[in-house]
C-alpha cells in the first residue's frame, strides 16, 4: 500500500504519504487563503522526498471537512482527479476524525474547528478513534451545555475558551494523522467512505425580491 492523504478543509494545506507501515513524508503549511496554490506543489514535494511517483500510489484519502467550502473543494477535486487519472482508489475521511485521532485521547472529548461567522464545526468522541455522533455547525454558546467539562481539540476550542476551557493539542489538522487513521482502517478491513464534501450549511443565496421598481412611487 502507498497511501496519499491530503486535507484542505482547515487553514492548513496538509499532505502526507504512508507506506502501510508508517508516514514516510509530510508537508504542512498554514495559509487559509492559498490552498489552491499550495496543494499541488506540496504533493510534488512529498512524493519527491519519499522518492515515489504519483503512479505508485494505491490509495488516496481526502479530508471531507466540514470546513470553509472554497478550500475544502481544492482537496476533494484534486483527490478525485488524481484517482480518475491514475486509477488509485479514492476515499474520504471526516476532517474532525483526523484531529481526534491525532489527539490520542482515550476519554470522551470534543473536536471543534473554526467555521467562521462566529460558529464552530464540531463533533463528540468517545475516544481518539470513535466519533459518537454526526459533525455539526453551531454557535459555541448554543452547545456550551453539551460540551461542558469535556476536553476539546482543534482551533475552534482555542478560539472560544469560555465554552471550551480544557483545550488540548493539536490545534491544526495534519494529513499524517489522517493517513495513519486511513491506513489502520484499511488494514483492519474497514470500509472508508466515498469522498463527499461535508458542507453542513446550505449555500448562501438571497432570492431576489420580485423585481425592484425603478420609478419612485
Amino acid at each position: 500500500m502507498l497511501l496519499l492523504a491530503l486535507d484542505t478543509a482547515t487553514p492548513a494545506t496538509t499532505v502526507a504519504l504512508h507506506d502501510g507501515e508508517s508516514v514516510i513524508a509530510t508537508s504542512h503549511q498554514v495559509d487559509a487563503r492559498r490552498h489552491g496554490e499550495l496543494l499541488l506543489p506540496a504533493v510534488d514535494r512529498v512524493l519527491a522526498e519519499a522518492g515515489r511517483k504519483l503512479g505508485q500510489v494505491t490509495d488516496i484519502v481526502a479530508g471531507m471537512g466540514p470546513g470553509p467550502y472554497t478550500g475544502l473543494r481544492v482537496g476533494l477535486v484534486t483527490a478525485a482527479s488524481f484517482s480518475a487519472a491514475t486509477g488509485a482508489r479514492v476515499h474520504g475521511l471526516c476532517t474532525l476524525d483526523g484531529l481526534a485521532y491525532a489527539s490520542g485521547l482515550s476519554e470522551p472529548f470534543v473536536v471543534a474547528t473554526d467555521a467562521r461567522r462566529k460558529e464552530v464545526y464540531w463533533a463528540r468522541y468517545d475516544d481518539a478513534r470513535t466519533r459518537s455522533g454526526e459533525p455539526a455547525v453551531d454557535r459555541p454558546a448554543d452547545i456550551a451545555d453539551e460540551v461542558a467539562d469535556l476536553p476539546a481539540v482543534g482551533a475552534g476550542a482555542e478560539l472560544y475558551p469560555d465554552v471550551f476551557p480544557d483545550a488540548r493539542p493539536p490545534a491544526h489538522q495534519s494529513a499524517a494523522a489522517l493517513a495513519s487513521l486511513a491506513a489502520e482502517m484499511i488494514a483492519a478491513g474497514e470500509e472508508l467512505p466515498a469522498p463527499r464534501p461535508l458542507y453542513l450549511r446550505r449555500p448562501d443565496a438571497q432570492v431576489p425580491q420580485n423585481y425592484k421598481r425603478v420609478t419612485p412611487q
Binding site: 489552491g36 496543494l39 499541488l40 504533493v43 510534488d44 504519483l54 473543494r73 481544492v74 477535486v77 484534486t78 483527490a79 478525485a80 482527479s81 488524481f82 480518475a84 487519472a85
Partner: peptide, 8 residues
C-alpha cells in the same frame, strides 16, 4: 485544481 491534478 482539477486541471493541475490531471496534468500532474
Amino acid at each position: 485544481s482539477a486541471a493541475k491534478a490531471y496534468a500532474y
